[in-house]
Amino acid sequence: GTEDLKEEAKKALKKGDKERAKRALKKAGLSEDQIKKFIKEVL
Rank of each mutant, 00 (worst) to 15 (best):
K14S: 10
K15I: 13
K27V: 07
K11E: 14
G1T: 14
D17S: 03
K26V: 13
G1D: 13
E8T: 08
K10Q: 06
I35T: 04
S31E: 05
L43D: 05
G29R: 02
I35V: 05
K18P: 13
F38V: 07
T2W: 14
V42I: 12
I39H: 01
K6F: 15
K10S: 06
A21K: 00
K6P: 03
R20Y: 10
I35W: 02
I39G: 01
G29Q: 03
L30G: 00
E41C: 10
G29W: 01
G16K: 03
F38C: 05
S31D: 12
I39Q: 02
L5I: 05
L25C: 01
D4E: 14
G1F: 14
A12S: 06
Q34K: 04
T2G: 10
K40V: 11
D4I: 11
G29M: 03
L43F: 09
A9V: 08
L43G: 06
E3A: 11
E8G: 03
E19R: 07
K22T: 12
E8H: 05
E3K: 10
K11T: 11
E7T: 08
K11W: 04
R23C: 10
L43N: 05
L30F: 13
E19L: 08
A12E: 05
L5V: 05
K15D: 15
K6G: 03
E3L: 10
F38T: 04
K14Y: 11
E8R: 07
K18V: 15
G16R: 03
K40E: 15
D33N: 08
K26G: 07
K37L: 08
T2H: 12
E19T: 08
I39M: 09
E32Q: 07
L43S: 06
A21M: 04
A28Y: 05
I39C: 05
K27S: 10
R23M: 06
L30Y: 10
K40H: 15
A9Q: 01
K6A: 07
K40N: 14
L43E: 09
E32A: 08
I35H: 01
K27E: 14
Q34W: 04
L5W: 14
I39D: 02
D17N: 07
F38P: 02
K37S: 14
A21P: 00
E3G: 09
E7D: 10
I35C: 04
K10I: 14
L30I: 02
L25W: 00
R20H: 11
D17G: 02
F38D: 02
D33W: 05
K22H: 12
E41G: 09
T2C: 09
K37Q: 15
R20S: 14
L43M: 12
E19H: 06
K11D: 12
S31L: 04
E3M: 09
A21S: 02
E41T: 09
V42P: 01
K27P: 00
K37H: 12
F38W: 08
K18Q: 13
E19Y: 05
E8I: 12
E7W: 07
R23I: 14
K36M: 11
F38A: 05
D4K: 13
T2K: 10
K22R: 13
G1S: 14
E7V: 08
E41A: 12
A9M: 03
E3N: 11
E8C: 07
R20D: 08
A24Y: 14
A21Q: 00
Q34R: 03
A24D: 06
Q34F: 05
A24I: 15
D17A: 04
I39S: 01
E32K: 08
I39W: 06
A28I: 08
D33F: 04
K14R: 13
T2R: 10
T2S: 11
R23K: 12
A12R: 03
T2A: 13
L43I: 09
K10D: 03
V42H: 11
D17Q: 08
I39V: 06
K18T: 15
G1K: 13
K18Y: 15
G1A: 13
A9S: 02
K6R: 11
G16M: 05
A24Q: 08
K18W: 15
E19G: 07
E32R: 07
K26R: 15
E3D: 13
V42Q: 09
E19Q: 08
V42N: 09
K40Y: 15
A12W: 13
E32I: 08
K14C: 11
K18D: 09
K14L: 15
K6Y: 15
E32G: 06
A28Q: 03
D33P: 06
L25N: 00
K18L: 15
L30N: 00
E19A: 10
E7H: 08
K11M: 09
L5T: 03
K18G: 10
K6E: 09
K37R: 12
K27F: 05
R23Y: 04
E8W: 07
K36T: 11
K26I: 14
K14P: 01
G16P: 01
T2Q: 11
K40R: 10
D4V: 11
D4R: 13
Q34M: 09
K18R: 13
E8M: 10
K15H: 12
V42Y: 15
A21C: 07
E7S: 08
S31W: 01
K10W: 05
A9D: 01
D4L: 12
E7R: 10
I39A: 02
Q34G: 05
A21E: 00
A28L: 13
L25M: 03
A28N: 02
E7Q: 09
A24H: 08
A24P: 00
K22C: 11
G16Q: 03
E19C: 07
K14H: 11
G1Q: 12
A12F: 11
D17P: 01
K15T: 12
G29V: 00
A21G: 03
D4C: 13
Q34V: 04
K15S: 14
L5P: 06
K36N: 14
K22E: 14
E8Q: 10
T2D: 12
K18C: 14
A12V: 02
I39E: 05
E19V: 08
L5K: 04
G1H: 12
E32V: 09
K37F: 06
K11Y: 04
A12Y: 12
A24G: 02
F38K: 03
E7G: 06
K26P: 00
K15E: 15
